[in-house]
Design a protein around this nucleic acid. Structure first.
Lengths: 327, 327
DNA sequence: TTGTAAGCGTTATCAC
DNA sequence: GTGATAACGCTTACAA
């Protein structure tokens, strides 16, 4: 590996001069600057991030941590982050589950965006400090150096359920995601509250449990069919499970929405193609805003008011416009 | 930041002892080991990756470089990589476009997997060495420390075109991707060769140019319609463009496959849902194998025979089983 | 304008 | 079994 010393030797100067050139310090003659730069190019020298980070204590890198590879819209979040970060001359490293913590504790990054549910709250609370701000997606954390960027799950979900009631649906089923996740909790709360406001009873036996993956939706739907526990409308906590459920119902010869209506949450690519009624989250913007707040906070702003992203209902063909009332 | 020195002070030992404990050296008494470990936990000490990397010259981290956020199956490749890497106690950092080169040139990673088309061949050729092996996806590079993992585009594409001819299609259009990419070249070659073997003429004016993105397929299709240059079957170099084309045709009231048949390449999620005939690439396996070869090569194997991943045709409803011949 | 030298957090070598 | 110390590549006072 070619280092600063090699350049210095070749240029016949000291290492500090090289460093000065590289860091755009003004105390170096135009001649030397030129010469040094040329040599760097010739020897294809790249300053060592580790050497620099070790000395300086930081660099312009932020980290993004995620782990659920089944949620394909994560790519959109990444793109949002990546675009903002690039425009602001920061570098981005993305890492998954366990490595994340390791890279936070060091001076490899100056801040991070966390989407990984596996990352524990108390770790984040203990790591965050004025020199290492954090942005968390989809969770609320109260700390003066942590900004929460959360989707407004509650309002659109409630509105959608009211809309379903208006369309004539009465017998509701709910297919939930992992129960420790905030978004699942909020979606379920909104669902229950809406029914309560509309004075529609909801029985616990119509609550089914999934894990946000397509397979779990498939299994849950099969159970509904085989145990004859069919609701008129199955509200799912995300699209993947809704899609799994649709496939399962279809495999039994059941038609969506004629035999059973279904809704999702996320508006993934497939949802559009399959005509799934769902709630659309602006993912690119979500990533972009997260990166923006993080970098602003790194630069000293330290604005940590929770930021709420609006989501929008997409009515599609998986629910009927007017469900004919029974009898 | 709590460092090895703080632990040493707290434990009343020297830093070397701490280091020895941390690295599982045997020359340390059980008592001290226990004590040190406890203190590390109490102070929530995490060894600095930078310090270590600087000293040791490497660590167990590999890098994955990509940049096209529109290709949603990239997540599957990542998952394949991530799974293998985790099982082998390596860390993974993912980065996009320009940062990639920076992180290669340093001792931050011990090797990398490259999918980013923007990464120049000559950079890779100059960086690869026995201590820094590279695996490239979707491109062929001849270097004793670079392994190419490529999809067999040619054979299944040729087979598919032959199949289309058998089904009665004669008037072919081709919608290509970026022309500098190997996969586009191979797919087009196979397309032309198959037609030639079947003695079906292909006229250059039925070659349309796209960039692998949905939008470009949409535009190309609109041009076909408005200039009356409609083929019977439009073979697209990837799914995204095929999907764009389908949307455009539908917007003109044209039916796929009745009015025009379409095929894609990739078998993305949407392809299944839309009934697009396409060629399926085992992406998870692709990532997994890439990671496996890379880590084996880091461990000294240095097997750099190109590895070819098979791909499989998925016949779906976007082409007719039997096209009734004209006249 | 340029050079010297200390130090960032770690590990390796060698002495004790 | 334990501890001093040099070294990794870099930046930054400070000295020249």
């Amino acid at each position: 590996m070619v280092g600063i010393k090699d350049i210095a030797r070749e240029a016949g100067t000291s290492v500090s001069t090289i460093s000065n050139v590289l860091n755009g310090k003004k105390n170096v003659s135009e001649a030397t600057r030129e010469r040094v730069l040329n040599i760097c190019r010739e020897l294809s020298y790249y300053p060592s991030v580790t050497g620099r980070a070790l000395k300086v204590g930081n660099n312009n890198t932020i980290m993004f941590n995620f782990s659920d590879f089944d949620r394909s819209f994560y790519l959109k979040i990444m793109k949002g982050i990546s675009d903002y970060v690039n425009d602001n001359d920061f570098d981005l490293i993305i890492c998954t589950n366990k490595s994340g913590e390791k890279y936070m504790r060091n001076n490899l990054s100056r801040g991070c965006i966390i989407l990984d549910k596996m990352m524990k709250d108390n770790v984040l609370l203990s790591v965050a400090n004025p020199n290492y701000p954090i942005v968390v997606l989809d969770r609320m954390l109260d700390h003066r150096c942590i900004k929460s960027v959360v989707v407004n799950n509650y309002d659109p979900m409630k509105e959608m359920v009211h809309g379903l009631v208006q369309r004539g649906y009465r017998k509701f089923g709910f297919l939930g995601g992992p129960e420790y996740t905030t978004d699942n909790k909020e979606r379920y709360e909104a669902f229950k509250d809406a029914l309560e406001e509309d004075k529609i009873p909801f029985r616990q036996k119509f609550y089914f449990k999934g894990d946000y993956k397509e397979k779990s939706g498939y299994s849950a739907a099969k159970i509904m069919v085989s145990t004859q526990m069919m609701p008129e409308i199955l509200v799912c906590a995300n699209d993947n499970m809704a899609i799994g459920a649709i496939k399962a119902f279809n495999s039994y010869g059941l038609n969506v929405p004629a035999d059973i209506a279904i809704t999702g949450f996320d508006d993934c690519d497939l949802a559009g193609a399959m005509g799934l009624t769902t709630i659309s989250i602006p993912n690119y913007e979500r990533g972009f805003m997260a990166a923006r707040y993080l970098i602003e906070n790194i630069r000293g702003e330290m604005n940590t008011e929770p930021f709420m992203i609006p989501a929008k209902i997409k009515w599609r063909s998986s629910v009927l416009e007017f469900k004919s009332k029974k009898i």
